[in-house]
Lab assay of single mutants.
Amino acid sequence: DYYEVLGLQRYASPEDIKKAYHKVALKWHPDKNPENKEEAERKFKEVAEAYEVLSNDEKRDIYD
């Protein structure tokens, strides 16, 4: 669930989505996790995908 990936509720505002994305993206950035790079890359891609969908009103409506 994209909301879960970003740690958000379904009623999150666009500002909340952006803030959550930056927080979680920093947490899972591969450069910040050199000891667990493969998992970090996978999680970072999930976070980016979730943000791409939830930050676009049209894609978010379809997802919801």
Rank of each mutant, 00 (worst) to 15 (best):
L26F: 05
P34M: 12
E46M: 13
L8F: 00
A40N: 07
N56L: 03
Y3V: 00
R42W: 09
A20R: 05
L6N: 04
K27S: 06
V5F: 02
E58A: 14
A50M: 00
F44L: 14
D16S: 05
E46T: 05
V5S: 09
L6E: 01
H22T: 10
V24H: 13
P30Q: 09
W28N: 08
R10F: 04
K32Y: 08
K59P: 03
L26C: 13
A50P: 00
K19E: 15
A12S: 10
G7N: 09
D16M: 07
L54V: 02
R60L: 02
A40W: 03
K23T: 15
E46R: 09
G7I: 00
Y2P: 14
R10K: 15
D57N: 11
W28S: 08
Y63G: 09
L8I: 12
Y63T: 06
I62P: 11
A20Q: 07
N56I: 05
E39I: 13
L26M: 13
D16G: 01
E49W: 05
Y3H: 03
K27G: 09
A40V: 07
V47F: 09
L8D: 08
L26V: 08
E38A: 13
E35A: 13
K27C: 09
Y2G: 03
S13G: 11
Y21D: 03
A12L: 00
E39V: 10
R60K: 14
E4M: 04
K43E: 04
N56Q: 06
D1L: 04
W28T: 08
Y11P: 15
D16I: 01
Y11K: 14
A48M: 14
I17K: 01
V47I: 07
H29T: 08
R10S: 13
E39S: 07
H29G: 07
L6Q: 03
A25V: 15
A40R: 07
K45T: 10
G7K: 06
S55I: 15
D64H: 11
H22C: 12
Q9L: 02
N36Y: 06
P14F: 04
N33C: 10
K19Y: 07
S55P: 00
Y3C: 02
Y51M: 04
Y3M: 00
V47Q: 04
A12R: 01
E41D: 15
N36P: 03
E35H: 09
R42C: 06
I17N: 02
Y3R: 02
V5H: 04
Y21H: 08
Q9N: 13
L54A: 02
K45P: 02
D61S: 12
V47T: 09
D61G: 14
L26W: 07
K43L: 06
D1V: 02
Y63E: 06
I17R: 02
K37T: 10
V53A: 06
S55E: 03
P30F: 04
K32T: 09
D31Y: 04
Y3L: 01
K19L: 12
D61I: 15
E38V: 13
G7S: 06
L26T: 11
Y3D: 03
V5G: 03
N36S: 12
E15Q: 07
N33E: 05
N36W: 02
E46W: 02
S13C: 05
V5D: 07
A48Y: 10
K59N: 05
K27N: 05
